[in-house]
Design a protein around this nucleic acid. Structure first.
Lengths: 260, 260
DNA sequence: GGCTAAATCTCGTGC
DNA sequence: GCACGAGGTTTAGCC
C-alpha cells in the first residue's frame, strides 16, 4: 500500500487532489476545518470546527470529531459525491436516495489529505456469542440430551440468571450453564449458586446441574465431580454450521480456539 | 490545526511515533497492514490486510476496511490503550471493562501515521424530524387541542397515510397533517384527499381537517378557509425543549428555521 | 420495496 | 451499576 500525503496551500489546490482521489476510487482522509449540513430522515447542522473526514471508494462518508466512537455525521455507501468550490469554501456533497438524504461538508480550510488504495482480502471470522448459542440450544434442547425440554430461558433466581432451565425425560429439573469458551471453575461455581438458590424453593425436586461448553478446565472438572454436576461438550463449529448455513458469504467452518 | 505526517521505515520507528501521539493525547490515524483479534460480548478475528485505524484522544479506537460505512472492529471511548512490539509485529491493545472487552491490532507493516490536535468547539444542532414531531404529538395530543385523543398514527387511507387520526372532545374525527416547516398549499391538498377518501367510508361522521405546522403560507391559508379546515400553529423550539429537556449537553434552544 | 428481528448495537436517563 | 427507551439506529433475512 502506498499512502500519498498532501498539505494543500489553498482550497484550489485541495479541490484538485480530492477530485483525483475520488475519480481514482481511493480511500481518502481529510483533516480540515468545516461546517456541516445534513438533511434527510433527520436534520442537523454542525458549526465550524476541526474534523477528520473519511471518504471510501464505495462512496461512504464519515465525519469524525476529536472525541467519541461514532461519527457526528455520515453517509452510507450508496452515495453520489459531488465537489465544488466557491471563493472561500470547498464543498463536498454526498447524496443518496431511498431515503433521500443530503450530507454537505463545507471546508474553510484543509490541512491535510492522505489517500491510498487499500489491499484488504482479509477474512472476517465472527464466532458465536453465548447469546446465540443459548437461543439455539433452547430451541434444540435435544442437541444437549435426548428428551430434554426447555422450560425457561434466562430464568431469574436470586444469584442471577439461569441460561437454560429444562426438564429431562425423567421429569427432573435441569439447570444449564452455557459457556462459549472452555468452561472454568467460575462457571461451575456459578451453576452451584443457582442450584443452591433453586433448592430452597423446590426442596422436593431432583435438580441436575449441567455445564454446556466446547471444553472444560481440569479444576472445573474436579468441581463438577465434587458437586455431582455433569458436563456436556458441544461442537461450536457444528453448531455454527446449523445456525449460519442459510447465510451467504460465510462459507467456511468456524472454530472457537481458546480463551484469549 | 497542525497535522504531522510520518512514513516510518520500520515498526521500531513507528512505535515511538505512536507512543508520543498517545501520551500527548492527539487524534491519530494509521494506515497499515494488520490482523485483528476481538474478544468480549462477541468474538472475532480479522486476518491480514490493509486498514485504516483511528485512535482518538479519549481512547476510542476504530478499524476501517476500504469499504463500508461501519468499522469492522472498534472500541468505545472508555479504554486503556497499550503498545508493544515484537520482532515482527507492532501490537496495539485497547481494553475496557464493563463489559470486559479486548481489541488487539497486530501490525506487520505501518505505511503512514498522521496525528493532530483538533480544535473543535462546533455546536451540533439537531432539528426535529417530522417523524419525531408526529410521535411526540401522538403521545401528547393535548398539545394540539384540549380533549383530543389519538386513535391512530399513520392511518392508511387510499391516497396515502394520515399523520394523526384523532377524536376531539365532542366525538368528531380529526384528521391531522403535520409539517416540520411552513405548510404549503400541497399540505392542504393532501389533507383534502385524505378527508375526501375517509368521507366515503364514514358518511355519518363529522370530520375535521387540521394542519399542524410552525407556519403557513398565504395560499395554504386561503385553501384552508375554502375547505373549512383549521390551522394550529406549533412552536418547534418549545416542542424541542419538551422532547430533549432530559438530555444533557444540549443546553441551548433549538429552532427550525426554514427548509435548507 | 416494506416489515421483522438482532446487534460487540450506541447513547442516553432514571432507579 | 443495571434496566429501559430511542436512534438519521444499522444490518440481515423474508415476503
Amino acid at each position: 500500500m502506498k499512502v500519498v500525503h498532501y498539505t494543500p496551500t489553498d482550497l484550489k489546490e485541495a479541490v484538485e487532489i480530492i477530485r483525483d482521489a475520488l475519480t481514482s476510487k481511493k480511500l481518502m482522509i481529510i483533516y480540515g476545518c468545516c461546517h456541516i449540513f445534513y438533511e434527510g430522515r433527520g436534520a442537523s447542522r454542525l458549526t465550524s470546527g476541526d474534523r477528520v473526514i473519511i471518504i471510501k471508494r464505495d462512496g461512504s462518508v464519515l465525519v469524525h470529531r476529536p472525541f467519541g466512537y461514532s461519527p457526528v455525521n455520515w453517509q452510507p455507501e450508496t452515495t453520489d459525491i459531488s465537489l465544488n468550490i466557491t471563493s472561500n469554501e470547498l464543498i463536498i456533497k454526498a447524496i443518496r436516495t431511498t431515503p433521500r438524504e443530503i450530507l454537505e461538508i463545507r471546508f474553510s480550510q484543509i490541512y491535510s489529505i492522505t489517500h491510498a488504495i487499500l489491499e484488504d482480502k482479509g477474512e472476517f471470522i465472527e464466532y458465536l456469542s453465548e447469546h446465540e448459542i443459548r437461543d439455539y440450544l433452547s430451541k434444540n434442547p435435544s442437541y444437549i440430551e435426548e428428551g430434554l425440554t426447555t422450560i425457561d430461558i434466562e430464568k431469574h433466581v436470586e444469584p442471577g440468571f439461569i441460561d437454560l432451565y429444562c426438564r429431562d425425560r425423567n421429569g427432573n429439573i435441569v439447570v444449564i450453564e452455557i459457556k462459549r469458551v472452555t468452561a472454568s471453575r467460575d462457571a461451575v461455581l456459578q451453576l452451584k449458586r443457582y442450584i443452591d438458590s433453586l433448592k430452597k424453593y423446590l426442596p422436593q425436586e431432583r435438580i441436575r446441574g449441567l455445564i454446556v461448553a466446547p471444553g472444560i478446565s481440569k479444576s472445573a472438572l474436579e468441581l463438577i465431580e465434587r458437586y455431582k454436576f455433569e458436563y456436556k461438550r458441544i461442537d461450536i463449529a457444528q453448531l455454527y454450521k446449523s445456525l449460519r448455513s442459510k447465510q451467504r458469504g460465510r462459507n467456511l467452518l468456524y472454530y472457537i480456539t481458546k480463551k484469549g
